[in-house]
Design a protein around this nucleic acid. Sequence first.
DNA 1: CCAAGCTACTTCAAATATTGAAGTGACACA
DNA 2: TGTGTCACTTCAATATTTGAAGTAGCTTGG
Lengths: 157, 157
Amino acid sequence: MAITDICKQHCSVAQAVHAVGDTWSLMVLRELFLGSRRFDDLQRFTGASPHLLSKRLRALGAEGIVERRPYQQHPVRHEYRLTDKGLDLWPVIAALRSWGDRWAAQAAEPPVTVRHRGCGAQVEPVPVCPDCGEPIGARDLALELSPQARAQRQAMR
Amino acid sequence: MAITDICKQHCSVAQAVHAVGDTWSLMVLRELFLGSRRFDDLQRFTGASPHLLSKRLRALGAEGIVERRPYQQHPVRHEYRLTDKGLDLWPVIAALRSWGDRWAAQAAEPPVTVRHRGCGAQVEPVPVCPDCGEPIGARDLALELSPQARAQRQAMR
DNA sequence: CCAAGCTACTTCAAATATTGAAGTGACACA
DNA sequence: TGTGTCACTTCAATATTTGAAGTAGCTTGG
């Protein structure tokens, strides 16, 4: 089965994974969140080959996650920016960063810190229950499948 | 440049991506969070080929993200479970799910809902500033590179 | 007691994707 | 005229993934 079929699954994770769930897309997203806009910078900082970067940017463009816009004429040069849909992926990158800091850190100091523009506080983006305010870990959660999703999984037997 | 070199970057995102940043690892994680433990179930529900699943489980095992433990003798059969390190990846999967629900949903109803065991409330895991309590979006954040990280990026010029 | 089935894989050839190096075209700057 | 930059594309070599088939050890039904 190909991932193309997977994304037909009635599963939001599968669809998100289909859109951005590969090494280079994630690295490109990281770089875009860090502020790079140009092909060259994206290539240098992510380490992707130009071929691959070109492909990934096209794919992300087709998904509406990045926008390719000209920033000069003569010659036409393009830059890449996150759309709203792309910006909305920030929790994914933040979660990866956070996990990386906790479990794979090589340095005393985390390489990137995140500050909330509104209040100036340093943010460690821990998911928090909106209702009771407690931080949420995996063991604190119960996942519930919708009837439709349950039926689909049954059908895979 | 290979991703192996990328992960040497002083960057937590790169290291997390190196560990779990590919389609099948993410799908396997989704499945493990949904409660599957057996090779067979993982294969059926993720759609990965057995070859690939075997490789991925080995890789995730080597990273200490899943644990392979026998659940019966005669013959020895193993099941796969998330370690604490693996469980800690839940915000990543949650963020993907959330994004998928918002931007790629095909159904009226989200396929999986998440409930907080502690207070019973339904949780939409929006990152919230621990200081001021406001929900955090990408535009509300300022990213700051550590001096070390900054130096490394300079060196890549 | 024999055949069929289950689980957890492995093996293999064919298809597909990625890498690294080199090349291109349009211009700017000296 | 010559060098440099940017944003790619092209290409051959290499690596990975797929899909189908196979295997080993045991269980279950008749």
